[in-house]
């Protein structure tokens, strides 16, 4: 693909996609035509009729208080998940992992559900603790084996254990809370609000900035520990800083919108196919394309059918076949 087209896709596309997303909704209210007509009238023909004034108010309300926070939230979540996937794939030198495969999402979901049910500590903090616990366990379990498969398998096992923990929490919680937890585990963006966004944007941007700074170091780490040490780098510290960021990004998004699985797996592949493996280019592209593409998926999830499909189910449906495709592609080094 031509370089200029790639850069347009990554860095110019977000603007129109964000604008279009503001006018797409499951209710069919506030579509582009009506909104623009009323906006035009309110500016150039100050005397709106009472009915028009009312629907103009409502459209403004929907766009500003419902859709704008949701669009921004979706963008941040997409950027966070795709960057955390890029980081984890680089550090584990494994194109088959993301925060879901490694069990970070399940760990974070377990922590968050625990905090939601029993209200002990803030949900994000509990999610982060669960995520760190899960990735630490996956790492330790995988160390006893070797190669690309053992990390995926150990991630699966750890993920399964935390999923069981989550089921126990669901079993123990009362019906009202249960429904909230079930909806949230499927990955739902419809609850996004300005308050929710306020809790999310700080840590997500902080995580993204640290990864952006470390993006070249990620190139070095992805050649392996010995190769990193041979060039005079201590990989231990860099690794844990980056894994910490990936976990933070995942945990914050899980706490806010639930589990959106496999998104962090396939987005880094899309970026690598377009821009190559060099993380100096791939990380910024992951941030923007990650945000944009999740918006596109979310637009489909809320407009394709009369009811809204949770976005996590949508990404799972896209990501599953993609995972199988990667597995079958012989280029993978299984040892």
């Amino acid at each position: 693909m031509k370089k200029s087209i790639v850069y347009i896709i990554c860095y110019a596309l977000p603007v129109p996609v964000i604008l279009i997303s503001l006018f797409i909704g499951s209710t069919g209210q506030a579509d582009v035509g009506t909104a623009l007509a009323l906006a035009y009238k309110s500016v150039f023909a100050p005397a709106l009729s009472a009915a028009e004034a009312e629907s103009w108010m409502m459209i403004q309300n929907i766009i500003y208080n419902v859709r704008l926070p949701r669009v921004l939230m979706t963008f941040l979540v997409g950027a966070a998940l795709s960057v955390s996937g890029s980081v984890l794939q680089g550090i584990f030198r494994n194109p088959l992992v993301d925060s879901y495969v490694l069990g970070i999402s399940s760990g974070a979901a377990f922590g968050a559900a625990l905090a939601m049910t029993f209200v002990l500590i803030p949900v994000s903090l509990a999610a982060f603790a669960g995520g760190i616990l899960a990735v630490g366990m996956s790492y330790l379990v995988a160390r006893s084996g070797s190669g690309i498969v053992s990390i995926v398998l150990s991630g699966m096992v750890i993920s399964g254990m935390f999923a069981a923990g989550l089921a126990i929490v669901q079993y123990l919680s009362n019906p009202y809370k249960l429904q909230a937890i079930v909806q949230w585990t499927m990955g739902n963006l419809h609850a996004a609000s300005w308050q929710e966004l306020q809790r999310v944007y700080g840590p997500v941007i902080a995580g993204l900035v640290v990864v952006y700074i470390y993006r070249w170091r990620l190139n070095i780490l992805s050649l392996g520990d010995d190769a990193a040490k041979a060039t005079g780098v201590n990989p231990g510290l860099d690794k844990w800083i980056l894994i910490g960021c990936a976990t933070l990004l995942t945990a914050i998004t899980v706490a806010a919108v639930g589990m959106i699985s496999f998104y962090g797996l396939f987005l880094p592949h899309m970026v690598r196919m377009m821009l190559g493996a060099d993380n100096r280019k791939a990380i910024p592209a992951s941030i923007f394309l990650g945000g944009t593409f999740l918006l596109v998926i979310d637009n489909f999830s809320r407009s394709l059918f009369a009811f809204e499909i949770p976005v996590g189910i949508f990404t799972m449906l896209l990501g599953g076949p993609f995972f199988i495709y990667l597995m079958r592609k012989n280029k993978l080094n299984w040892n």
Partner: peptide, 22 residues
């Protein structure tokens, strides 16, 4: 080292530049 492998499509230039990490 005896073993090194990368599964990612780094260019030769990318690989050489990592030699300057320290």
């Amino acid at each position: 080292p005896q073993f090194y492998q990368t599964v990612f499509p780094f260019t030769v230039e990318d690989i050489l530049l990592t030699g300057r990490a320290a």
